[in-house]
Design a binder for these strands. Structure first.
Lengths: 219, 219
DNA sequence: AGCTGAATGTCGAGG
DNA sequence: CCTCGACGTTCAGCT
């Protein structure tokens, strides 16, 4: 990793055109070949960047970064204030917990948390337009399609609606109703779901993780 | 801006839970108060970060970054290899030249590029659920709603479908058919559009820009 | 390699 | 403040 603090001007020509006038910035060159230009704000987002694979051509005062698609990032260096290199090695990487995949897993193990008497038929039940997260049967023996989201938005309702339309064409499953399960609901999604006869169930992730039997885990 | 290269472990507890085992990384502290942890890969994206507003509590060997929502980023510093500060000043910012809004503009000027005899009635035609990109009339005098996308995906078809349903309730406009115009089509979007009786038209941006009369431009 | 859906998306406009 | 849609989205997972 190379860290350069420099007064510079930057031009990007690619999917769009962008220009940065002269100012002092951080130029971050990573071992993966990426280049990013940071100001002292905008949180972690750089002003401009080039993702790998790309080649860097270093002429005195001008760095030209090109990628195979023909996009170009041209950095004109007016004054270099700092320049250091550091060996970081490969990173062991990030372990995440609490995303949609994990939520789906917990609900597959505890469908009754969505509704009393709900039993899992199949997880990732395949259809022509994609897999249904959870296919279940309720206490009355009726088929239920469950779509799991971290945050339920309009898209999620549309998606579940498409699944329901398709599943209801299958005489072995019909009639099928829908449950949209999420940690958080956008009001518009709630309204549209109601209009479509889809049940919204707010999921408490922490409580659900508590429900999951710890003794059944090996770690 | 403060640049720290250090061997560290990181824990995040917030919207989800994440952990980074011990490794050497860049810790980037910006003047806006943000903190981001970078490995030597993943292009410009940090492994973990905290956006402002947040407070940094520096104890020896442990930095605790907290935001008002109660999210926490805990950095355990095992060895500091580099630590430097730099005055950058405020950045004049980025000037962009968009490609996307342009597409709608070009099609508004050249509706015949979508279909022979197509004429523009109104751009951004307002409806209760949002503006229709282009409202047109075809060679047969029939109303046509055009949705413009850079890349047409499923939600673009859904969006146009909702518009069509609404527009067809207006006796002055009905019957209204739909055209989905895009530079690129996802296969599923094409299938769903066909099923809904929506016409897909692939748009060649470069050619369209060529169509646009250069003499009518001042630059 | 191409396509699809998720994301601590981020970002900006509009109510 | 929240909601919604676009993005040079990026990214991982799967066909």
């Amino acid at each position: 990793m190379r860290l350069v603090i420099a007064r510079c001007r930057v031009d990007y020509r690619g999917r769009l055109t962008a220009h940065l006038p002269s100012a002092t910035r951080l130029i971050l060159l990573k071992a993966d070949g990426s280049v990013s230009i940071h100001a002292d704000d905008r949180a972690y987002k750089p002003l401009n960047w080039m993702s790998p694979p790309c080649t860097i051509e270093e002429a005195p005062g001008v760095w030209r970064v090109c990628n195979p698609a023909g996009e170009q990032l041209v950095i004109e260096l007016e004054e270099i204030l700092h320049d250091s290199r550091h060996e970081l090695g490969t990173d062991p990487g990030l372990t995440k917990d609490g995303v949609e995949a994990h939520l789906q897993e917990l609900l597959a193990d505890n469908p009754h948390a969505l509704e009393d008497g709900l039993r899992l038929l199949q997880r990732e039940y395949p259809t022509a337009i994609g897999p249904v997260d959870l296919l279940c049967r309720d206490a009355m023996g009726r088929t239920v399609a469950v779509e799991v989201k971290r945050v339920a938005e309009l898209d999620g309702v549309e998606q579940l609606s498409r699944y329901l339309e398709l599943l209801n064409r299958d005489p072995l499953l019909a009639p099928v109703r829908g449950i949209l399960a999420a940690r958080q609901f956008r009001p518009q999604a709630r309204v549209l779901a109601l209009d479509r006869g889809i049940t919204c169930v707010a999921v408490d992730y922490e409580a659900l993780r508590g429900l999951d039997d710890p003794s059944s885990r090996l770690f």
